[in-house]
């Protein structure tokens, strides 16, 4: 049992990752009514970009994070402008499945299929009561908390954030108030991919990089927002940490092979009994 705090800490790290992804996914759904199955593909692409920047260009990790995140956001903006805006809303989900294939193949062609170990200079250890973690992991936790607070404040306090909330509540009414719905969906998608790209360059180094690394995360992020309630940022954050901790504790105490099942079992129970999630509006 003395390992339990360590498992919980690993769960919090996973949860931080899920939270960064789920917030963006939730925004995209609220504004565009799109379940973006390709969401974590930008996570994967920017993890690779961050690796390549450090290896071939600038070996400063912080600069690489910033560059990869910005590149991911620009890519997201382009995808919204070039592809998604031309499609009908009911087709967006199937289109995102096509984008999954495209993103994975692009990564496969550029970086090849072999798993790449991506190490950063942040290898020192931080002790924290009964748990020990690397600086990289501590950075993930801290950045996630800062970003979560920033996103929550953005929607509560800024004019632009409020306009986005208004669009998600009632698009027609928002447009009558002079809010440009196109700008809002562009912003929602770009901010979402920016968060995914940030997560990729921060969490990517904790695992090895493969072109297929995005898909399981997309699935988990979907489970998280359904658990927390689709459209609720707070619900997404709470759901992310809950599922992260449950998975990690189950993997540690019971069986690591079957721990991926935890999320699916939660999803199936949730959709069967309370489809709107913990904090979702009916």
């Amino acid at each position: 049992m003395d390992l339990l705090p360590q498992f919980i800490m690993n769960g919090i790290i996973q949860g931080s990752n899920y939270a960064l992804l789920a917030m963006g996914l939730s925004m995209t759904y609220s504004i565009m009514r799109m379940v973006n199955f390709a969401h974590a593909q930008l996570y994967m692409i920017s993890a690779y970009l961050c690796y390549s920047v450090m290896k071939y260009w600038i070996s400063n990790y912080l600069v690489a994070i910033v560059l990869a995140t910005i590149a991911g956001a620009i890519l997201g903006w382009l995808i919204e402008r070039i592809v998604l805006r031309r499609a009908q809303r009911q087709n967006l989900f199937v289109i995102s499945l096509g984008l999954v294939i495209v993103a994975q193949e692009v990564a496969f062609i550029i970086w090849e299929g072999f798993a790449i170990n991506f190490s950063t200079p942040l290898t020192g250890l931080v002790s924290f009561g009964p748990v020990t973690l690397t600086q990289q992991k501590a950075l993930v936790i801290v950045v996630a908390i800062v970003v979560e607070l920033a996103v929550l404040m953005f929607f509560r306090l800024s004019r632009f954030g409020k306009a986005m909330v208004a669009t998600s509540a009632n698009e027609d009414a928002a447009q009558l108030m002079g809010i440009n719905a196109h700008t809002m969906s562009s912003a929602a998608f770009t901010i979402g991919t920016l968060l995914a790209a940030l997560a990729g360059s921060l969490v990517g180094p904790l695992f090895s990089l493969t072109p297929g690394m995005g898909t399981p995360l997309s699935i988990t992020a979907l489970i998280v927002i359904i658990f927390g309630g689709i459209g609720s940022i707070g619900g997404a954050i709470i759901g992310a940490y809950t599922i992260g901790i449950l998975q990690s504790v189950y993997a540690g105490l019971a069986s690591p092979e079957w721990s991926t099942l935890v999320g699916f079992v939660i999803l199936i129970i949730m959709l069967s009994f309370r489809p709107r999630g913990l904090f979702g509006r009916e």
């Binding site: 087709n91 289109i95 096509g98 294939i101």
Partner: peptide
């Protein structure tokens, strides 16, 4: 890659 791009183009 071609298959994925075709799929997206065809749906749109």
């Amino acid at each position: 890659l071609i298959q994925g791009i075709l799929m997206v183009l065809i749906i749109i």
